[in-house]
Amino acid sequence: MASLFPKRLLGRRSKATQTERVRERRHEGFLRYANFRWAKISGGLCLLIIVSYALVDVTPRHNGGSWYGYTLGTIGAGLILWLTALGYRKRKMTSDYWSLKAWTSAHVYLGLSLIVIGTWHTGFQLGWNVHTLAWALMMLVILSGLYGVVVYSTLPAALSNNRDEMTQMQMLEAIRAFDRQLHSAAQPLTPEDTAPVLAALDEDPFAGGIGARLSGRYPRCATAAALRTLGMSRSSDAEARDKVIGLLSQKEAALARLRQHLKIRALLEIWLYVHVPLTFALIAALSAHIISVFFYW
């Protein structure tokens, strides 16, 4: 596997090459990192396990308690702890050389290899017990991680297109600016026309629970309601009403952009709220699994 690690990586880390190594001339995503280095390593590892599982003759049969099973179990448990450490690595800005992209790449591919390591470790003996609970939690963590990989590789472009060089603060600011203009433009309207506009002004752009955030649908949007009401109303001065309607539709467009922005960001983040807690549940179940195995040795 030597060719996967170019010599310069194994050599002494001099300062000049340090900076040079961080410098890349082109953007290269974490999945493609170093020409799929970790995909190759992880794939090779899985292949090795599958082949050796078939070749090694364990009596009476393959299970977690054989020497082969212990080996896979140890590798798996070690890997789980190391994969968890990404959360720490990501936040700890030490000054030595490391690339979070390389860590992410390894995290994804080695994490996927746990499907083989973990499952082959069980010897395909699953049941209703704490051991299988650990396995099931692990599979759920991997599944949520897979969702993460999919959204990380598909949604960023949409996020970029939708925001169109605007920052989140600017989106909020744009909505507030329309609100201020609406406030003065709505002064000449009749009370029945003013009421829906005031409701639209009072609307919190962040309101509407998790469902609305993730779907991007806000059926009770006060701005849309005000637009509908004013569109049908005949009570106020037509010119003043048209001005308010114009502002309301501009605000609606600004709201739509912000909501789409929040939706994509939510989709990019939501899985972490599953992935991380499940990881801790997994570590708890794993500990129970290991302790019980040794207890009944």
Binding site: V22, H27, F30, S95, D96, Y97, W98
Partner: peptide
């Protein structure tokens, strides 16, 4: 003075950030 080089690039999890 930080041996690892620019932190913004090192800390990008997806490889989106480069300095050129």
């Amino acid at each position: 003075g930080i041996a690892g080089g620019p932190a913004c690039v090192r800390a990008c999890p997806t490889g989106a950030a480069i300095r050129v």
